[in-house]
């Protein structure tokens, strides 16, 4: 594993007082968080804690009820198009064009972003000859690898990954983690939402825990055991 960045760069993700309400349901309640350039932050929490809602707001797929959200210096509500140009996104359920191959999907992303190297994208996906098969024939893991390649190929300054490592076989997960760490070393800010604490322990610099829509803990990754104990308490006997 490459060495961890200490995350001393400028703020790439700024969330202040984020609140999201659906009718009477408060999904996110006054969340503050920051991710710096060259920092890998893990976002954890039980189901319904507000992780996906927070990521949806950050990735312009949902408008906040209250609060300020900036990605790479761009207000995601005021200028969602500009914000998207500065981020790579892997949603929880990544969607791709079913009748393209992974190679064509990556070529398409390189074309619309106007940046990126298709060969580098293919290396991130690691699909080998399967890169020339139609995506509709792919397993969930292969789709996720393709989506990761699409998110990373243009080397955006910020990466938002929602459960992006789930379903990957161990060698693929290793390869993706290597590429993610390389992106962080180049100065990218990464926010990864996951349930798998073991993964975070190895790759993250800092871990944020959401609970009932609020930030319940913000700890360095080497203090993950504190969160593990908390998860265990919630799981019960």
């Amino acid at each position: 594993m490459t060495g961890r960045s200490m995350g001393g760069g400028e703020d790439r993700v700024v969330v202040e007082g984020l609140r999201k309400v659906f009718g009477r349901v408060v999904a996110v309640d006054r969340v503050d968080l920051r991710v710096r350039a060259g920092e890998f932050v893990g976002l954890v929490g039980p189901n319904g804690a507000g992780k996906s809602t927070t990521l949806s707001v950050l990735t312009t797929r949902l408008a906040p009820t209250e609060g300020r959200v900036e990605v790479a210096g761009v207000d995601v509500v005021a200028d969602p198009a500009a914000a998207r140009a500065r981020m790579g996104v892997v949603p929880e359920d990544p969607r791709l064009y079913e009748y393209l191959t992974a190679r064509e999907m990556i070529e398409f992303v390189v074309r619309v972003r106007g940046a990126g190297d298709v060969d580098e994208g293919l290396a991130i996906a690691g699909l080998g000859e399967d890169a020339d098969r139609l995506i509709r024939e792919y397993s969930q893991g292969m789709r996720r690898k393709t989506a990761l390649a699409c998110a990373m190929v243009a080397r955006p300054p910020v990466l938002f990954l929602d459960e992006a490592l789930n379903g990957l076989d161990p060698p693929s997960a290793e390869r993706v983690i290597r590429h993610l760490r390389a992106a962080v070393d180049r100065g990218a800010a990464v926010l990864l939402s996951t349930h798998v604490l073991d993964t975070l322990e190895r790759v993250a610099d800092r871990i944020l825990m959401l609970e009932a829509g609020r930030v319940a803990a913000d700890v360095p990754a080497d203090q993950l055991d504190r969160l593990r104990a908390r998860f265990a308490d919630e799981a019960g006997p």
Binding site: E107, R111, R155
Partner: peptide, 16 residues
């Protein structure tokens, strides 16, 4: 520092 962005290669013919 912003991460280095690789330069785009020639666009695939089908997307030209």
């Amino acid at each position: 520092m912003a991460p280095a962005t690789p330069s785009a290669r020639p666009v695939a013919a089908w997307l030209a």
